[in-house]
Design a protein around this nucleic acid. Structure first.
Lengths: 408, 408
DNA sequence: ACTCTTTGTCCTGAGACAGGAGAAAGTCAC
DNA sequence: GTGACTTTCTCCTGTCTCAGGACAAAGAGT
């Protein structure tokens, strides 16, 4: 678990030494992050500060090295402006740990993904084994010349997190992680500040930063992967709940006295849909001879995954389509309830199962629009996420940048 | 519709002319409202301002007449302090319009209810008729010497509200109110600022101000009256949703293909519970001879109300108890889903049906604790509201005081 | 009578800040 | 090329905010 112990990364120099000294500077950093390079004049138009005060704060930021002035912009009919931008050497690491895979990416200060690696993995192997892989992937990205080191890292885990401490709590699908000091440990290894959150929340942050939710203040982000979760954004900020388990919708009941669920209850959404349930249903269908396409895949591989259903559906397999539609309807049932309750301005559907695409989306939409009240659905877009596998890592980078770009 | 047009109240002098000039003053007003009289020193301990700056702001507030200094407090071992308090002449009007009744109350600046009147009423009579009653009740309170006039009024209506404009939108149970300019109209009649909100949100505000939710930042307030709604408080503030319909949980589906509901769908919570459903179920039970107690009441009155079930249950009637338990279980089903999703720190149960008391509460608790995940329910109190019929009017007073005690 | 504590007032100096004046560096019309 | 105009950025000055020390007021305790 210490890929970096040897080459001296551990406990190495912290690269980003400065933090904004006040709210004005924090505001400026956020503007530069979200909009890219700006002139002083452009910044001034957005921050409600006098030119003099703005100049002072920009100068101070330049002194810290957090931002740089490089080159002059083209004239717009007068004196040319200086390009103020975030330090081009800043690098954030985004890590998205799923149930069955891990994504790692490097971004610059504007949170553009410069490099991205994915690897199959099983969270149940526990934090030590997973960390080794994460660090190896990070090292590979670093060695490919994308970063000389990291100024901060965000990491998402597939379960509830005690956010202030960055520690998973009672995660059902990753028992070995309970109480493991993720933040502390990763920070030690990387030698930089780290923030930890639920993977679903990070997907919401990612879509908010660079995806479909850019202009939304109140929205839901439903992630359908191995399990099903929901990121909640209220007033532009992620809402995490009292104990960090908000958005845990996989175990909402959709059928009284329905199928047994791994959680011990009956009729949970996850007993009917999600990667795990879908794979199981597909195997059943294959064995019962309801789908030759699925049966062929099963015979070839010995086991089926959600992606097999996706492939079969694309090929027009009726049973596969039916499975997706049924799952979408179940999911739509739950989302309809959430829409009535929360009255969001947008619902984003994402996660691994988005490969199921528009069949799934159509089933969800049908159910929600049919079941929720018109006032709540009247102007409610239900759309697929835009960022795919980059949503999580982008959100992770945004999480840590939000932290570092705030006054200490 | 103008009880006051004659006696010159309409367009009369606005009593509270001043508003806080800055955030510091607003903070001080809120402290004085929530804690009662304070000395300058006590205020200073809570506002992170220097003594000099504090003194300046207090002096300015004294000049405006919003606060007064009356008398000296007992010595605590040194010089005696001046009691700084909100102007004792300030009066707020709180109005809570329910489906079948209206509550009106007068409070002082500390939001203590000085007088309170209730009257049966049917919202479906429309805004004009209801306003007449509200104004008559307000006049009665005024004439009894509790107020010489009102500095502000809050009003709750049983349906979604476009909050910034104070206008009901598409309210299912009060069709005549759609788009009626409640804020504007009441403000004209009373000659003071008015804020309008959903009745459920006001109940949440009331319980937060003076009831069981005093220390909670994130909680749900489920109001079971004629219909069923839910107030959502996030980070201490009421969340109203994108179109003002957040918390509309009465039409969440609890039974796929279940009972038809007035909304056009099937299996809604309100088709199974709430004052209206309960009364109907009780009548059915009476007619079918399942309860002599209820049958007697029905014979006597010709119709049954939820309160009849309450009375029968108190007398030990098994069928009445069963009805309450079944309704509580249904409600618990929905709340369990909301708890998983929202992970609140507290759930408050209130509304007219709280007369059903602990039978109802027990059924809800059983269902929620059984059905939601342990992490979300582990430390989750589910309690009855403390304020009863005063929750709504207290919340209404708080709504307008929050508004008036903020910088203009 | 004396000391100590608490409360409240006054004063001064440091820093935050807005906005005017003007320098720098360009475009554009002629 | 020249002059008029625009845009960007810098510098300066006067105003306002504010913290904290000194001090006055008013009481308790000995």
């Amino acid at each position: 678990m210490s890929v970096y112990a040897e080459d001296g990364w551990r406990g190495g120099v912290r690269r980003m030494t400065a933090r904004p000294a006040n709210a004005h500077q924090a505001r400026l950093l956020h503007l530069l992050r979200d909009q890219g390079p700006n002139s002083r004049a452009q910044l001034g138009d957005q921050v409600d500060l006098s030119r003099s005060k703005l100049a002072v704060e920009v100068d101070r930021l330049l002194e810290t090295g957090l931002v740089v002035a490089d080159g002059l912009a083209a004239s717009r009919g007068g004196r040319r402006s200086h390009n103020i931008r975030l330090a081009p050497t800043l690098r954030f690491l985004g890590v998205d740990i799923g149930a069955t895979s891990v994504d790692v990416a490097v971004t610059n200060a504007e949170l553009e993904v410069l490099g991205h690696l994915t690897q199959p993995m099983d969270v149940r192997e526990g934090p030590v084994a997973v960390f080794e892989q994460v660090l190896a992937l990070a090292a590979k990205l670093k060695d490919s010349g994308l970063a000389e080191g990291f100024d901060g890292a965000g990491i998402g885990v597939p379960g509830p997190v005690r956010f202030p401490e960055g520690v998973p709590v009672a995660p059902p699908i990753m028992p070995g992680w309970d109480g493991f000091p993720v933040r502390e440990a990763l920070s030690q290894e990387l030698g930089c500040p780290v923030m930890v959150d639920n993977d679903v929340n990070l997907m919401a942050l990612g879509e908010q930063h660079a995806g479909v939710a850019r202009t939304s203040q109140d929205f839901l982000c439903v992630k359908i992967g191995t399990g099903i979760g929901c990121g909640i954004v209220v007033g532009g900020a992620v809402y995490r709940g009292t104990t960090g388990s908000a958005g845990d919708i996989g175990h909402i009941q959709v059928e009284p006295d329905g199928r047994r669920c791994a959680c011990g209850n009956a009729g949970c959404l996850e007993a009917y849909f999600g990667g795990a349930a879908l794979a199981r249903d597909a195997e059943d269908a294959a064995r019962e001879g309801r789908s030759t396409a699925l049966a062929d895949r099963l015979a070839a591989a010995g086991t089926l995954a959600a992606s097999d259903v996706s492939v079969a559906a694309s090929a027009g397999d009726a049973t596969a389509l039916e499975l997706i539609k049924a799952g979408g309807t179940r999911t739509g049932q739950v989302i309809a309830g959430l829409v009535s309750f929360f009255n969001p301005g947008l619902v984003v559907i994402g996660g691994g199962v988005t490969g199921l695409g528009h069949t799934l989306l159509a089933a969800i939409r049908t159910q929600v629009y049919h079941q929720s009240l018109p006032l709540a659905t009247g102007n409610l877009p239900i759309v697929l996420g835009e960022l795919g596998p980059l949503a999580g890592v982008t959100g992770a980078a945004r999480l840590i940048s939000d932290h570092l770009f705030s006054p200490a």
